[in-house]
Structures are given as C-alpha cells and as structure tokens.
Simulated assay, not measured.
Amino acid sequence: MTSYGQMPNIRGQMARAEKTSDRVKPRRASVKPAEPGAPAVGRKEISPEVAKGSVRIYGRYRGSQATKTEAERNLSFIIFYTCDSVDTELVRLHAIRRGLPVSFVDEIVQSGAITLGEVNELILPKRTLSRRRQAGTLTPDQSDKLARVARVVAKAEKTFGNKEKARRWLRRPTAPLNNEEPLKLLDTEAGARMVEDLLVRIDHGIAA
C-alpha cells in the first residue's frame, strides 16, 4: 500500500494540465495544394501572404525541414496552377528568379503533364538535369521554362475541363497554329503566348 505521504498530488496535476491545455491553441487545418494535373474547379488558392512567406523561406532557407517542405508545397501550388492575382504572379516571378527546386521537374513528370523526353526538349537536357540535382535548384532560365510549360498546361486543362483531353490537344497538330503541336511551341515565350491566345479563343467558342 502507498502511504499518505507518497500519494500523488492528483489535484495539483489536474490543475497544471488544465492550465497547459488553455495555453495550447488548436492547430488550424491547412489546405494542402492539389496535385498538379488535378481539376482547378473548386480549389482554394493560398493567400498572398502565405505565398510570399514561402518564397522567403525557400529563397533563404532557415528553420526545420518541415517548414521548408511546406514552403515548397506552396511554391508548387503557384507554379503548377493558373493564378490570376497580381500578388501570386509576383511571387511566381521572385521564385523563378531565385531558382525553383529540381524536385518540381519530377513533380510535373509524375503528374503526367509532360514526359522526361519533353522535359529534355522544352526545359533542359537530361545531362544538365543530373548536374542540377546536385545543386538542388534550377537556374532562373530553366525555372522560367518550367513555369511557362506548367502555366500553359494548367490553362489547357482549365479550358477543356479534363486533363486527359487537354494533354491530347497539346500533342495534336492544330490548324490555327500552322499544324504545329501546341506543346512543341512552348520552348519560347512567343510560342506559349500563341497557344494561350488560341486557348482563350477556344474557351469563347471562336476556334476549334
């Protein structure tokens, strides 16, 4: 048997536990960015403040790996989806200038949006990609190419409302583009603008 002097102070423990629970604030459920290639309908865009914070964290990494991972997720959300606000476009610009993570190349390939062969043609050669893996980031020029391809793929998916239909269209010779495959025009910004203009026309029922 436990003597009176050895009995635990249950009342004191409960009081301390109650005070601790008062100090702990419940964690807010974060909205996880949808995977690249997922329908844009109904998604919730992250706030400009979170986006800008993610660029700062990633560009000058300090803190835990979990924090860096969350920053990369937010950057991924901006790069791989069509974000119409000025704030998110500025965040996209700053992220590109600092260099996007090489993991974003793997992400867009795994999503099925483009193949490694198309990465080789449109963004950077395979050998260069292997070297960039050691650095961990793409150069600003390579980042710009990746973001451009992602931007047009996202716009095509939004226009057609079906990612598979959009991806087939991007690889099919199209009369309004002089029978060029839209995807192959994404190696330049001028070509990307031509494809985007055509997508706008399709969205308004002007072109097929």
Rank of each mutant, 00 (worst) to 15 (best):
L90A: 07
L93E: 11
L116H: 04
I108R: 00
E180V: 00
K165H: 11
E181Q: 08
V41A: 01
A29R: 12
V119A: 09
R62N: 09
N179D: 12
S103D: 14
D87L: 10
K184G: 00
V86R: 14
G205S: 08
G59R: 00
V102C: 02
N120W: 05
Q6K: 09
A29Q: 12
A38Q: 10
V24N: 04
L138H: 01
E157Q: 11
V105G: 15
R98N: 02
L185I: 01
F104I: 01
N9P: 02
Q6M: 07
T174K: 09
L170P: 05
C83H: 01
Y61V: 12
R11C: 02
T115V: 08
Y58C: 03
C83S: 05
V31C: 04
K19C: 00
K145P: 02
R148D: 14
T2A: 12
K158P: 02
E121S: 13
I96L: 03
E180G: 00
R133S: 01
D141Q: 10
E121A: 01
N74I: 05
I78W: 04
K184V: 00
L100S: 08
E89N: 13
S3P: 09
V152R: 03
I96Y: 02
E45K: 05
V153G: 03
R43V: 07
D22C: 15
V109S: 10
G112F: 14
T115R: 09
R43N: 14
I78G: 05
P182K: 03
T82A: 01
D84A: 15
M194T: 14
V24Y: 13
L177D: 15
S21M: 09
D197V: 03
G59I: 08
V152E: 07
P48T: 06
R151D: 12
L138I: 07
V153A: 01
R98V: 12
K19G: 06
E189I: 04
A147R: 00
W169K: 01
R62K: 05
